[in-house]
C-alpha cells in the first residue's frame, strides 16, 4: 500500500475514534445524535476507501449500508423521537465529563496495547484498524454507563456498532451477510428502544433510566 493510501486510511480510522471522544463531550441530545451520525458517515468513507484501495467491491455495500441506515435513517428517527416525546434536550451525566474523558483515554490506550502485540505479523493497516475499532467499541458502552438518559443509550449502542463495523472493514473475508444482519439488528434495536422510550416516558414522566430502579419490586430498602 502506498504512503498516501495508508495516510488516508489512518486519517479516517483516527477520525472515527476522535468522533467517539467528541460524543463523550456532548451535553445535548441532538448534538450527540449528530455526532454519531457523522461518525457513521466517516465510517462509510473508510469502508469506501478500503474498497477502492483493496479492489473489494463488497465493501461498497458496507459503506452504503453505514451511510443510509446509520448516518441518515436512525439519526432522523431519533430526532423525530425527541420531538415527539418533547423531552428536555440536556443530558444528565452519572459522572463528570472530565472523568469520562480520562476513562476514554485509558480505554483506548488499553485497547492499543492489547491489540498491537496480538496482531504481530499482520499488515500495518489491519493492526491499526483493529486497535481503533476496539477502542471505539469500548467507548460506546462507556458512554452508556456514564449517561443516564435513555436516548444516549441508543447513541452509545450505535457507536459501539460503528466500532465493530470498523473492525470488519479491515479484516479480509468478512461475509456481507454478517454485516447486513448486524445493521438490520441495530435498526430493529432502535425501534424496540423507541417503543421502550414511550413506555418509560408514560410510566415515569422522564427518560432518566435511573428511575427504573424503582421498579425492582422485591428489593428491600
Amino acid at each position: 500500500m502506498t504512503g498516501l493510501a495508508f495516510d488516508i486510511a489512518h486519517l479516517l480510522g483516527a477520525l472515527v475514534l476522535t468522533l467517539s471522544f467528541a460524543l463523550l463531550y456532548q451535553r445535548r441530545l441532538s448534538a450527540a445524535i449528530n455526532v454519531v451520525a457523522m461518525q457513521a458517515a466517516v465510517l462509510a468513507a473508510a469502508a469506501a476507501w478500503q474498497a477502492v484501495t483493496r479492489d473489494a467491491g463488497h465493501l461498497f455495500v458496507t459503506a452504503a449500508i453505514a451511510l443510509i441506515f446509520k448516518a441518515i435513517a436512525v439519526p432522523l428517527l431519533l430526532h423525530w423521537l425527541i420531538r415527539r416525546l418533547n423531552i428536555s434536550t440536556t443530558v444528565e451525566a452519572a459522572f463528570g465529563v472530565t472523568l469520562t474523558m480520562g476513562l476514554g483515554v485509558g480505554v483506548s490506550t488499553l485497547s492499543i496495547l492489547l491489540v498491537l502485540p496480538l496482531t504481530a505479523g499482520e499488515t500495518l493497516l489491519l493492526r491499526e484498524d483493529l486497535a481503533f475499532a476496539l477502542a471505539v467499541a469500548l467507548i460506546g458502552p462507556l458512554l452508556m454507563i456514564a449517561r443516564r438518559n435513555a436516548v444516549i443509550q441508543v447513541v452509545g449502542f450505535m457507536s459501539m456498532e460503528n466500532g465493530l463495523i470498523l473492525a470488519a472493514v479491515g479484516v479480509k473475508g468478512m461475509p456481507l451477510v454478517v454485516e447486513a444482519s448486524v445493521a438490520f439488528s441495530v435498526m430493529v434495536a432502535t425501534f424496540i428502544f423507541g417503543v421502550f422510550f414511550f413506555h418509560i416516558r408514560e410510566r415515569f414522566d422522564s427518560l432518566d433510566v435511573s428511575r427504573l430502579e424503582e421498579m425492582q419490586g422485591e428489593r428491600h430498602s
Binding site: H10, A14, T18, V105, S108, I112, L116, E128, A131
Partner: peptide, 9 residues
C-alpha cells in the same frame, strides 16, 4: 490522542 495516533503509526 494526537500523540497516541503518532505512536501507533
Amino acid at each position: 490522542l494526537g500523540a497516541i495516533f503518532l505512536y501507533i503509526s
